[in-house]
């Protein structure tokens, strides 16, 4: 009896090991556990045994049955899992293929820099305003303390549309237009296109400026330094800045602002002509004459104003060395931003 049990066990184990697929396992299951299996025959034969032995052998045969059942089920489960794994592996996509998408475009670098600067100033309570690009001589020059025959007109190579109308040479006329419309205090920022008849490697006849104006009761030159220091540090990080005297008819005192050269860290290079400094904007306290021309009481208000070239900032930010690239609109350039 126990020999027969051992023999069944051994034979089943061997077949389980040889089973190649689930079908084989089902056949093994019916062969060893089915109605015509040796184990069934063995159990049937137990009824002829004496009671005591029948009980013992019966227990052994049952144990064998349970054990065979377990082994076959485990083998089946293993086989099923292996099949799933195989199936998944067979159907698995090459997920290193690029994703499914249509091409996306890019924004112009001038737009990006303008948006960055606008966000810096709107966060400080400046409103964005707009003005015409074809401007009256009055707003572009006269109201800004640049009368006809003023030598400062030499600084502006102006495109004219008629005697009195021109393409604005700077965004400063928006200062006057805004002050004529709004009462102080005010804080405005005006980004936009400006035009000068000048075209070479460092000049395009159209470029972008951002004009800022703040009018209040007690705005000092020290405040101007503070405000522009915030701007420059937000744009370029914690770099050295210097303010040096300059001349604009519409501000006084006037200053030009240099930053430590971002290319050579102030050591001197071609970009900064060996000086270690790069000029990036012009600024000053609003000239009382301008307040008067705009209809404000020059004794009651003070103000600061600044203007910067967007392309200049973009060139420094992105390391662009030819301003003409901005207007060639070559996708090999544009796609980088």
């Amino acid at each position: 009896m126990s020999d027969e049990c051992a023999s069944i066990r051994a034979s089943c184990n061997q077949e389980l090991q040889q089973a190649a697929n689930e079908n084989d396992l089902y056949q093994i299951k019916s062969k060893y556990l089915g109605r015509s299996s040796r184990l069934t025959a063995l159990i049937k034969s137990l009824k002829d045994l004496p009671a005591e032995e029948r009980a013992r052998s019966g227990a052994a045969a049952n144990a064998l049955k349970i054990s065979l059942q377990q082994d076959i089920d485990i083998a089946l489960e293993n086989m099923r899992q292996a099949r799933t794994v195989r199936a998944i592996a067979e159907q698995a996509p090459d997920i290193t293929l690029p994703g499914r998408r249509t091409a996306i475009g890019t924004l112009h670098p001038v737009t990006r820099i303008t948006a960055k600067i606008a966000s810096i100033f709107t966060s400080m309570g400046f409103s964005i305003v707009d003005g015409p690009e074809i401007e009256l001589d009055f707003f572009n020059f006269e109201a800004l303390n640049i009368p006809k025959d003023h030598p400062a007109r030499d600084m502006h190579d102006t495109f004219y549309v008629s005697d009195a109308q021109l393409l604005r040479t700077h965004t400063s006329p928006v200062q006057i237009r805004t002050m004529q419309k709004m009462q102080p205090p005010l804080r405005i920022l005006c980004p936009g296109k400006v035009y000068r008849c000048d075209s070479d490697i460092s000049h395009t006849p159209m470029f972008h400026q951002i004009e800022g104006l703040m009018v209040d009761t007690h705005v000092s030159f020290a405040d101007l330094k503070g405000l522009l220091t915030i701007l420059i540090h937000r744009l370029f990080g914690d770099i050295s800045i210097r303010f040096r005297p300059s001349y604009f008819p519409f501000t006084e005192p006037s200053a030009e602002v240099d930053i430590q050269c971002v290319m050579c860290r102030g050591m001197g290079c071609r970009v900064c002509s060996g000086t270690g400094w790069l000029e990036i904007l012009g600024c000053g306290l609003v000239n009382p004459v301008v307040f008067k021309n705009a209809g404000y009481d020059p004794d009651a208000v003070t103000g600061l104003a600044f203007g910067l070239g967007v392309e200049r900032i973009a060139m420094l930010t992105y390391g662009i060395n030819d301003i003409r690239l901005f207007y060639e609109n070559d996708l090999r350039f544009l796609s980088q931003f």
């Binding site: 309570g125 400046f126 964005i128 330094k225």
Partner: peptide
């Protein structure tokens, strides 16, 4: 100009949208 201090405009807080 470098001996003029850096201060910040002392103006009322106000927000501004684009």
């Amino acid at each position: 100009y470098d001996r003029i201090p850096v201060t910040y405009p002392n103006v009322p807080l106000c927000g501004s949208d684009l």
